[in-house]
């Protein structure tokens, strides 16, 4: 015990020299001792960064039944040599194509890749110029982002993008006009999504009590099936309630927030969905900055309908109608005409 005290005392006496060493380390900046190292930015490192981030965070591998490891094995040999930015972008985009997900994007300062086959492989089923000219006769109201008109006591409401914000005042103005109608056509064709709060504001005019609209399942860990318990989402009514018949027009370009809106609406008792299947994209997009400064966007959650069904691949209409190229060329919109017919 005496020896212990003796050596401790001797050590403490020597501490003044240790003190000087600490001061020197301080002056040289301690960060250099435990420096945060930047990883090397090579083509292979960027590929690994993309693959690993999606492996850990992408939520739809199970829903889409994708073997991501085999994608790695197939793609990795393409990134052994150093590539120029164009080739690197092209090869990573090709790999991302496997996911068939409109929420997956690769954004470089020069280019953007987004999966778009969910609507480009199908007929457009929408031509606003035809509607404007032949059905609205170039005369309609516009409040906020919404175009609307009443013809023969049937209301027509067109919301082109949920990226364009709508206010409660805008909706009051629109729905005060629509109160007198016997039915309402809500056209969300070519609405590629945007802010979910705009979709929710519009939906809140079609309900008179709080409604369960969806479940969201988010990841809790890096494994492909590591999910938290599903979280329920409700929407409460707001402003004037529209209780008459509604026909909702959809097509394949109806994506993301619009897909959610269609899902919410499809559970109303007074609604008929007419047109083509929606484009899907019922997940929350998230982002990641790659080593070379490009941005990666991906789906970070799974959205389930109130019946617990995934809506990632879109929502089927009640009445499927296609606009043929001939009809479109002649200015005819059979989807809109069917809606009038249902409400007349």
């Amino acid at each position: 015990m005496y020896l212990l005290f003796f050596f401790t005392y001797r050590l403490l006496k020597k501490l003044r020299f240790i003190f000087l060493i600490i001061v020197i380390i301080n002056i040289c900046s301690c960060e250099k001792v435990l420096q945060l190292k930047e990883p090397a930015i090579t083509s292979a490192a960027v590929f690994e960064d993309v693959w690993k981030e999606l492996d850990k965070k992408y939520a739809l591998f199970s829903v889409k039944n994708i073997n991501w490891d085999s994608v790695y094995n197939q793609s990795r040999p393409q990134f052994t040599a150093e590539l120029n930015n164009n080739d690197l972008f092209k090869r990573i985009s090709n790999m991302l194509e496997v996911l068939k997900d409109g929420h997956v994007s690769l954004i470089s300062p020069e280019k953007t890749y987004t999966y778009d086959n969910f609507y480009t492989l199908y007929l457009r089923n929408f031509n606003f110029i035809n509607i404007e000219k032949n059905y609205l006769k170039n005369q309609y109201n516009k409040t906020g982002p919404v175009i609307y008109k009443i013809v023969d006591s049937i209301g027509y409401l067109y919301y082109s993008s949920f990226r364009d914000n709508i206010s409660e005042e805008d909706l009051n103005t629109i729905f005060n006009t629509m109160t007198a109608t016997k039915g309402l056509i809500v056209d969300v064709r070519n609405n590629g999504g945007g802010s979910l709060s705009n979709a929710e504001k519009l939906f809140s005019r079609f309900i008179n009590n709080r409604k369960l609209v969806k479940y969201e399942v988010i990841k809790k860990g890096p494994a492909h099936n590591d999910f938290l318990d599903k979280e329920a989402f409700y929407i409460s009514p707001s402003g004037n309630y529209y209780s008459n018949k509604i026909v909702l027009l959809t097509n394949r370009t109806c994506f993301s927030a619009c897909n959610d809106f269609v899902m919410y609406m499809s559970y109303l008792p007074n609604i008929t969905l007419v047109g083509d299947q929606t484009g899907g994209g019922g997940s929350v997009p998230a982002n990641y900055l790659l080593l070379n400064g490009w941005k990666l966007q991906y789906s970070s959650s799974v959205t389930l309908s109130p019946d617990n069904l995934p809506v990632e691949n879109g929502i089927q209409p009640d009445i499927q109608i296609i606009i043929s190229p001939f009809q479109e060329a002649n200015g005819i919109d059979p989807i809109l005409e069917k809606a009038y017919q249902l409400l007349r």
Binding site: K57, A59, I218, K219, K220, G221, P222, D226, L228, E231, V284, A286, S300, S301
Partner: peptide
């Protein structure tokens, strides 16, 4: 935040 950072 949670793993995804987007829970309620």
């Amino acid at each position: 935040p949670s793993y995804s950072g987007s829970s309620a």
